[in-house]
Each structure stands twice: as C-alpha cells, then as structure tokens.
Deep mutational scan, measured.
Amino acid sequence: TYTYKLTDEEASRRAEDEWRNRGYDVRVRNNNGTWEVEVR
C-alpha cells in the first residue's frame, strides 16, 4: 500500500486516475487539507 500526501486536489485526482488505469485499487481522502491518495 502506497500513500501519497498532496496539497493539491487536482494532483490527487490525476494520481487517482493514473493508478486506477493501471488496475490498482485507489482511495482518496482529505485529511485536514492534505489529500491522501492510497494505492493498493
């Protein structure tokens, strides 16, 4: 499981799409203004 911490929502969406396209399960959540993109 990888977790990315990003401050930019758009960057988190791009990361989400990119990993999803590669067949990974992705979750995005906002934690106090930081976007966490979790990849498994």
Rank of each mutant, 00 (worst) to 15 (best):
V37Y: 01
E18F: 15
N21S: 13
R20K: 11
E38A: 06
D8Y: 04
N30R: 09
D8E: 06
T7V: 13
S12K: 05
R40D: 07
E9A: 08
Y24C: 09
K5F: 15
R13H: 08
T7M: 13
N32M: 08
E36M: 08
L6Y: 15
R22G: 05
R13K: 12
D17P: 00
V26M: 00
T3N: 06
E10A: 13
R14V: 10
Y2K: 11
W19N: 02
W35G: 00
W19Q: 01
G23N: 03
E38Y: 08
E36F: 13
Y24E: 02
K5R: 12
N21P: 00
A15M: 15
G23I: 01
E36G: 00
G33Y: 02
D8Q: 04
W35E: 01
A15N: 03
N21E: 11
E38G: 01
N21K: 15
R29P: 03
Y4T: 03
T34E: 10
D17T: 14
N31L: 11
T3Q: 05
N32C: 15
Y4C: 05
E38P: 00
Y24G: 01
V37H: 04
D17A: 15
S12N: 02
E36W: 13
N21D: 10
R29M: 11
K5I: 15
G33I: 01
N30G: 05
V37R: 00
E18Y: 15
N21V: 08
V28S: 05
T3Y: 11
R29A: 08
R20Q: 05
Y24I: 03
W35C: 01
D25R: 07
V39R: 01
D25E: 14
R13E: 04
D17M: 15
K5Q: 13
R20A: 06
V37K: 00
E36R: 02
K5Y: 15
S12I: 07
T3P: 03
W35A: 01
W19E: 03
E18I: 13
W35P: 01
T1R: 10
E10R: 07
A15V: 15
V39F: 03
D8R: 02
T7F: 14
E18G: 06
R22P: 02
V28Y: 04
N31T: 09
N32K: 08
D8K: 03
A15H: 11
N21F: 08
R22Y: 05
T7K: 14
T1L: 11
T1H: 12
R22A: 11
W35K: 00
L6H: 12
Y4K: 03
S12R: 05
Y2A: 08
N21R: 14
Y4S: 03
N31K: 09
R27V: 15
V37P: 00
R14W: 08
T34G: 05
V26R: 00
R27L: 14
S12D: 02
T7L: 13
R29F: 13
N30L: 12
T34D: 07
R20W: 03
E18V: 12
G23W: 01
D25L: 11
T3V: 14
D8S: 14
T34L: 12
L6I: 09
D17S: 14
E10L: 10
N21Q: 13
V28G: 02
R20S: 06
A15W: 11
N32T: 03
R13Y: 06
V28L: 05
R14E: 08
N30P: 07
R40C: 08
T1G: 10
E38T: 13
S12P: 02
L6K: 03
T7S: 12
N32A: 09
R27M: 13
G33D: 05
T7I: 12
E18W: 15
T34W: 12
N30Q: 12
Y24P: 02
N32D: 10
E36V: 12
E36T: 10
E10P: 07
R14S: 07
R22E: 05
E10H: 08
T7G: 13
E10K: 08
N30V: 10
K5V: 14
R22V: 04
S12F: 08
N21A: 14
R29T: 15
D25V: 11
D8A: 04
T34S: 10
E10C: 15
V37M: 05
N32P: 01
E10Q: 10
S12G: 09
